Amino acid sequence: MLGPIQAVIVDLDGTMVDTLGDFEEALNRTMADLDLPPVTRALIERTVGKGSEHLIRSVLAHQLALPEVTGLANVCQARNADTLYEPAWQRYQHHYQRINGQFSAVYPGVVEGLAALKARGLPMACLTNKPLAFAQGLLVAKALDGFFGWTFGGDSFARKKPDPMPLLGTCAAMGVAPPRALMLGDSQNDAQAARAAGCPVVLVSYGYNHGEPVQQVGADACVDRLDALPALIQ
């Protein structure tokens, strides 16, 4: 049992919503704009979770290193991850804004779990490394926004998870001490941020932990569905 818990902070991508489809669509439209090969879901799953800037830089570096691209020596001399980042970022924002939520799905047990937590009177905040505008749009698109009194994105604070700053800022906004605020996420980013902030942490088993087993992260608990969480909280 975890507790006493006075508030719950919930990650978004890989925890509440399977957004790999959204990332894949937006990134592949971006790659097409830049005349680069399409990305694979495996690459996205390994690189997502540390914010859109990190995702785009990682994808660009990977795609530019592919044999079919490096073979174009005369082109590659003028095309590298640094020079392509700004146009890639602009195109990615353009595409993601238009498809946000269309290629994603809420995980089983999420609505039931959030409803049970809300019924117990626990205030909840959504804290994600996704840009705030995208996070707010996705929560509305999936009818999850009504569960949260606060939403913070990767651009809401000066630093992103796994830095503890976002969790500490969220706790301050909610008026709860970190040891009484439970972090629910899907990756080592969430666990490391929670540990550094002094928050207890539970991870779901199905998310995007950079391709590594989430059970190895060392959270306080791991659940297969979000609706299993209320039973663990005092």
Score class of each variant (00 low, 15 high):
residue 119 A to I: 07
residue 104 S to E: 09
residue 24 E to S: 11
residue 110 V to L: 07
residue 3 G to F: 09
residue 175 G to F: 03
residue 136 Q to W: 02
residue 57 R to L: 08
residue 42 A to L: 09
residue 89 W to R: 15
residue 130 K to Q: 11
residue 23 F to R: 07
residue 127 L to F: 05
residue 179 P to M: 10
residue 231 A to C: 08
residue 40 T to G: 14
residue 188 Q to M: 05
residue 234 Q to G: 11
residue 201 V to Y: 05
residue 203 L to I: 10
residue 132 L to E: 15
residue 161 K to M: 04
residue 105 A to S: 14
residue 202 V to S: 08
residue 93 Q to M: 05
residue 107 Y to I: 07
residue 175 G to Q: 01
residue 132 L to F: 10
residue 88 A to S: 08
residue 41 R to S: 09
residue 229 L to W: 11
residue 55 L to C: 11
residue 169 G to A: 09
residue 168 L to A: 02
residue 31 M to I: 05
residue 122 L to T: 12
residue 28 N to M: 08
residue 193 A to C: 10
residue 126 C to H: 10
residue 115 A to P: 12
residue 20 L to K: 05
residue 176 V to M: 02
residue 154 G to R: 09
residue 124 M to P: 13
residue 132 L to A: 13
residue 95 H to G: 14
residue 25 E to C: 10
residue 165 M to T: 13
residue 172 A to H: 11
residue 15 T to N: 04
residue 10 V to A: 09
residue 150 W to L: 15
residue 125 A to V: 09
residue 98 R to P: 06
residue 212 E to V: 05
residue 34 L to C: 06
residue 124 M to N: 12
residue 133 A to E: 15
residue 28 N to G: 09
residue 121 G to V: 12
residue 69 V to D: 00
residue 126 C to A: 15
residue 1 M to I: 10
residue 111 V to R: 14
residue 186 D to R: 01
residue 75 V to H: 14
residue 20 L to F: 10
residue 101 G to W: 14
residue 224 D to E: 14
residue 64 L to M: 05
residue 47 T to G: 01
residue 132 L to N: 11
residue 232 L to K: 00
residue 114 L to E: 08
residue 102 Q to F: 08
residue 197 A to Q: 06
residue 228 A to I: 00
residue 164 P to L: 00
residue 110 V to N: 01
residue 78 A to V: 12
residue 174 M to Y: 07
residue 170 T to W: 00
residue 193 A to Q: 05
residue 189 N to F: 10
residue 90 Q to M: 12
residue 49 G to N: 11
residue 216 Q to W: 01
residue 204 V to L: 14
residue 157 F to G: 02
residue 162 P to S: 07
residue 107 Y to K: 07
residue 184 L to N: 01
residue 62 H to R: 11
residue 119 A to H: 08
residue 200 P to T: 09
residue 193 A to V: 03
residue 59 V to F: 05
residue 92 Y to M: 04
residue 125 A to K: 06
residue 108 P to L: 02
residue 45 E to I: 04
residue 6 Q to S: 15
residue 75 V to Q: 12
residue 106 V to M: 07
residue 214 V to D: 00
residue 77 Q to L: 15
residue 112 E to G: 02
residue 126 C to F: 12
residue 104 S to G: 13
residue 152 F to E: 01
residue 17 V to N: 00
residue 228 A to G: 05
residue 95 H to C: 13
residue 159 R to E: 06
residue 159 R to T: 07
residue 130 K to N: 10
residue 91 R to S: 12
residue 118 K to V: 08
residue 34 L to K: 06
residue 166 P to M: 02
residue 113 G to K: 02
residue 195 R to Q: 10
residue 50 K to N: 15
residue 14 G to C: 07
residue 201 V to N: 05
residue 46 R to Y: 00
residue 91 R to A: 15
residue 45 E to W: 03
residue 63 Q to L: 11
residue 173 A to W: 02
residue 141 A to H: 13
residue 33 D to G: 13
residue 14 G to S: 09
residue 125 A to G: 13
residue 193 A to G: 14
residue 37 P to H: 08
residue 143 A to N: 14
residue 122 L to S: 12
residue 164 P to V: 01
residue 111 V to N: 11
residue 19 T to Y: 05
residue 139 L to Q: 03
residue 158 A to Y: 04
residue 75 V to P: 04
